Simulated assay, not measured.
Amino acid sequence: MTNKDFFRLMIKLFGLYQFLLLIFTSLPRNLQLLFNDFFSISSIITLILITLFILAVYYVFVKKPDLIIDFFKLDKGFDNNEITVSNLNSDTILQIGMVLIGGFLIVDNFGYFISSFITYFKISYMSENLESLKIFESLILGGANLILGFCLIIYRKQIAKKFQ
């Protein structure tokens, strides 16, 4: 594996993680802003800009990582052009990255999901109010991140084949 291949894999993994975080954190918040402002021009423009930014992150980091490697000259200045790894190939490294990203999503959102779950039922039992709806939204977001983390771990081989 060459240095450029290694950096390409790392940038793709980082890009995938950032893309998933942006999709499941930034986009729902801005959709909520859109509905709260009753489709005002500023909220529509903000949503369009956020969507374009998310697509740009995906394009640059996942589809065209060579742009970043060439811009920062990441593959220059090494004594060897090859990285020797005995039994690791790019598919295995991608699978390890998927497990790490999925594990981080699970660990990071498990407590948040359980806390939101308990709080939602406490508040909804007491009364119907706006706070219950906000807690429900955070419950859905935490649940989606947990499901995504489990899917990344379970389907890591299929996902890694898509990135080859």
Rank of each mutant, 00 (worst) to 15 (best):
D75V: 04
I147N: 00
L47W: 05
F72H: 02
V99S: 07
K122R: 12
D108T: 06
R8M: 01
I159A: 03
D108V: 01
Y58W: 15
L130N: 10
L141C: 02
G15A: 06
I154G: 00
N80F: 12
Y112W: 08
F7K: 07
F71D: 00
Y58H: 13
T119V: 03
I48C: 04
G142H: 04
Y155H: 11
L152P: 02
V85L: 15
S90P: 00
Y120C: 08
I101Y: 05
L31K: 07
F24Y: 11
Q32E: 11
M10R: 12
I101K: 03
E128T: 11
L74N: 04
I135E: 13
L13S: 09
L88E: 10
I69W: 07
I11R: 03
G111E: 02
F35K: 08
S40R: 03
F71G: 02
L100D: 01
F19M: 07
F113G: 00
I147M: 05
Q18N: 02
I93M: 13
Q95D: 04
S42P: 01
L74C: 05
Y120I: 07
L105G: 01
L22F: 13
L31D: 00
I45H: 00
F7H: 13
I96N: 02
I118W: 01
G143F: 07
I159L: 14
F7M: 09
S40H: 05
I41Y: 08
K134M: 10
L148G: 01
F117V: 03
Y112K: 12
L148V: 13
L88V: 15
E82M: 13
E128P: 00
L27K: 04
K162R: 14
L33Q: 11
L34T: 06
F104V: 08
A144N: 07
S86M: 08
F35I: 09
F121Y: 15
D37T: 15
G97W: 04
L100V: 14
T92R: 14
E82K: 15
K162C: 09
V107P: 00
N80W: 06
Y58S: 06
G149R: 02
L130W: 04
G142A: 12
I23H: 03
M98H: 08
F19A: 10
N87V: 05
P28M: 09
I41A: 08
F121A: 02
T92V: 14
L133Y: 10
Q95V: 01
N81Q: 11
L74S: 04
R8H: 05
V85K: 08
N87K: 14
L88W: 15
D79K: 15
I68F: 06
K12C: 04
L152R: 02
M126T: 11
I54P: 01
Q18A: 15
V57F: 03
N80R: 14
N36V: 11
L16D: 01
F117M: 13
I118M: 09
Q158P: 00
I96H: 03
S42F: 01
I123A: 11
I118P: 01
L22R: 05
K157G: 01
F61Y: 14
L139Y: 07
N81D: 14
F35S: 08
D5Q: 15
K161W: 00
I54V: 14
N80P: 00
K162Q: 11
S124Y: 10
I114Y: 09
F39P: 01
L47T: 13
R156Y: 05
Q95H: 02
I54G: 06
S26V: 15
G77F: 09
L52S: 06
Y59T: 10
F78E: 06
A56R: 07
